[in-house]
C-alpha cells in the first residue's frame, strides 16, 4: 500500500486544536470544533467532515475503506468514542465511549448511547432518528465487553429536535469563542 500522504484542508472558520492527531487526507468544514487529544485517521481513503460538528477529546474517527468517508453537518462525537462508518448524515450524536464499526452507515438524527458497541457483521444502514442504547442486563453481567446483543434500539419521535439543534449551535458558538483562549490552534497544511 502506498504510504499515507498527509493533506489537511481546514476551513478558516474551523477550530482545530494543536494537540490533535491527524493522518491522511482530511477536510474539515466551517464551524467544526475539534478538541485537544482527538484523533482523525484517514488510513485508506480521505475523510470529509462537514460544518458545525464537535469532535471531543479522545474521540477517534477512522476511515479504513478506500472510498471517501463523509461526515455531514452538526454531528457530535463525544469523549472517547470511535467511529469508522463510511458515511454519516447530519445531526447525529455518538455518545461517550461508544463504538461504531465500518459496516454501519448512519443517516440523520441518530443517537448512539454511551458505551454502546455497534458492530454488525453485515453492512447496515441506520435509519433516520434511530436510537441505540444499552439495557441493564448487558453490563450487570460485569463483563467489560458490552456485546451488541444486549444493546437495544428504537426510533426517536423527533420531539425536541429543534431544541437539540439549537443547543448544538450554541455549543459550537461557545467553543469557537472559548477554545482559542486556552489552546493553540492548528491551521490547514501547516504541519
Amino acid at each position: 500500500m502506498a504510504p499515507i500522504r498527509d493533506k489537511f484542508t481546514i476551513h478558516s472558520k474551523a477550530v482545530v486544536c494543536q494537540d490533535v492527531d491527524l493522518k491522511g487526507d482530511i477536510t474539515i468544514g466551517p464551524n467544526t470544533v475539534v478538541h485537544p487529544k482527538a484523533t482523525i485517521f484517514a488510513i485508506a481513503g480521505p475523510i470529509i467532515i462537514g460544518a458545525g460538528c464537535i469532535i471531543e477529546e479522545a474521540a477517534v474517527v477512522v476511515n479504513r475503506r478506500k472510498e471517501v468517508m463523509r461526515v455531514g453537518d452538526g454531528n457530535v462525537f463525544e469523549i472517547g468514542c470511535r467511529v469508522e462508518s463510511p458515511s454519516i448524515g447530519n445531526y447525529n450524536t455518538v455518545s461517550t465511549r461508544a463504538r461504531v464499526h465500518h459496516t454501519v452507515r448512519i443517516s440523520n438524527h441518530c443517537v448512539i448511547g454511551a458505551a454502546c458497541l455497534v458492530v454488525p457483521t453485515e453492512d447496515e444502514i441506520l435509519d433516520d432518528f434511530a436510537a441505540i442504547y444499552a439495557t441493564s442486563d448487558s453490563a450487570a453481567s460485569g463483563s467489560n465487553v458490552i456485546s451488541s446483543m444486549a444493546v437495544e434500539r428504537r426510533t426517536w419521535s423527533g420531539r425536541g429536535k429543534v431544541q437539540e439543534a439549537d443547543l448544538r449551535t450554541k455549543h459550537v458558538e461557545y467553543l469557537r469563542e472559548m477554545l482559542p483562549k486556552f489552546n493553540r490552534l492548528r491551521r490547514g497544511d501547516s504541519v
Binding site: 454511551a114 444499552a134 441493564s136 467489560n144
Partner: peptide, 23 residues
C-alpha cells in the same frame, strides 16, 4: 460506583449507595 458502570445524565446517587450496570 462499580467498574464499567454507565450513569445517565442528571442522576442523583444517594449517600452510602452502591451503583452498577448500564444504565
Amino acid at each position: 460506583i462499580a467498574d464499567n458502570t454507565v450513569v445517565p445524565p442528571n442522576t442523583v446517587i444517594p449517600a452510602l449507595a452502591m451503583f452498577s450496570g448500564s444504565p
